[in-house]
Amino acid sequence: MMQQIYPTVSHPYRYELNKDFHFAAAHYIPHEKAGKCSQVHGHTYFVNVTIVGDQLDETGFLINFQDIKKLIHKRFDHTLLNDHTDQFSDKDHERFPTTEIVAQTIWEIIQKHLDTLPNRPKCVQVFLRETPTSYVIYRPKDGDFRE
């Protein structure tokens, strides 16, 4: 993976963890205005997630790096994203597997897991590169976190 500098998120937390990983997946955008993207095609998605918190767990981690990758890579690698009907929809435009929605979905999956941890870390940014020249950043708003 190439060295990448990502946009940073300002936050008041003591610790910030960033994890890079990638996965290969196909998708299509089920709308006539999507042009060529309405046809099945694939990408190697490059992901960076930023997790923050003030408390470490009993192992001295905010969260184990490998746990982050497992949550996403194991689920989506070498799949057709549209087949993940628990996350994406061919009917609801707010759940089409666009890069924006895939980034939001990655955040939702990771944050749902973080919410189960006693030290309560937060995912504050998902950077998702779809092609060498195109990427999306998803940043949740304060109200998106459970307290």
Score class of each variant (00 low, 15 high):
1 M>N: 14
3 Q>G: 04
4 Q>G: 09
5 I>P: 13
5 I>H: 08
6 Y>M: 08
10 S>I: 02
10 S>T: 01
17 L>C: 08
18 N>G: 11
21 F>D: 11
22 H>E: 09
26 A>F: 09
27 H>R: 10
28 Y>H: 15
30 P>Y: 12
31 H>F: 10
32 E>C: 13
33 K>R: 08
33 K>H: 14
35 G>D: 13
36 K>S: 05
36 K>H: 04
39 Q>V: 14
42 G>K: 11
42 G>F: 09
43 H>V: 13
44 T>N: 10
45 Y>P: 00
46 F>W: 14
46 F>I: 10
48 N>L: 07
48 N>E: 08
50 T>L: 04
50 T>S: 04
52 V>H: 00
53 G>M: 00
55 Q>K: 09
56 L>Y: 06
57 D>G: 04
58 E>Q: 14
60 G>C: 04
61 F>N: 14
64 N>A: 12
65 F>W: 03
66 Q>T: 09
66 Q>C: 04
67 D>L: 00
69 K>H: 03
71 L>S: 03
72 I>R: 01
73 H>W: 12
74 K>S: 14
74 K>A: 13
74 K>C: 04
77 D>E: 11
78 H>S: 01
80 L>N: 06
81 L>M: 04
81 L>Y: 02
83 D>L: 11
83 D>A: 15
84 H>S: 02
85 T>W: 06
86 D>L: 04
90 D>I: 09
90 D>K: 12
91 K>Q: 03
92 D>Q: 06
93 H>E: 11
94 E>Q: 10
95 R>V: 00
96 F>V: 04
96 F>K: 04
97 P>H: 01
100 E>N: 14
101 I>Y: 09
102 V>D: 06
103 A>Y: 01
105 T>G: 03
105 T>M: 14
106 I>D: 07
106 I>Q: 01
112 K>S: 09
114 L>V: 00
115 D>V: 00
116 T>Q: 15
117 L>Y: 00
119 N>M: 08
119 N>R: 05
119 N>V: 06
121 P>W: 07
128 L>V: 09
129 R>G: 07
129 R>I: 07
130 E>Y: 04
131 T>F: 13
131 T>G: 04
131 T>C: 11
133 T>G: 15
134 S>I: 14
135 Y>D: 05
135 Y>R: 15
135 Y>H: 09
137 I>R: 02
137 I>W: 06
141 K>Y: 08
141 K>Q: 11
143 G>S: 14
143 G>H: 15
144 D>I: 09
144 D>R: 03
146 R>N: 08
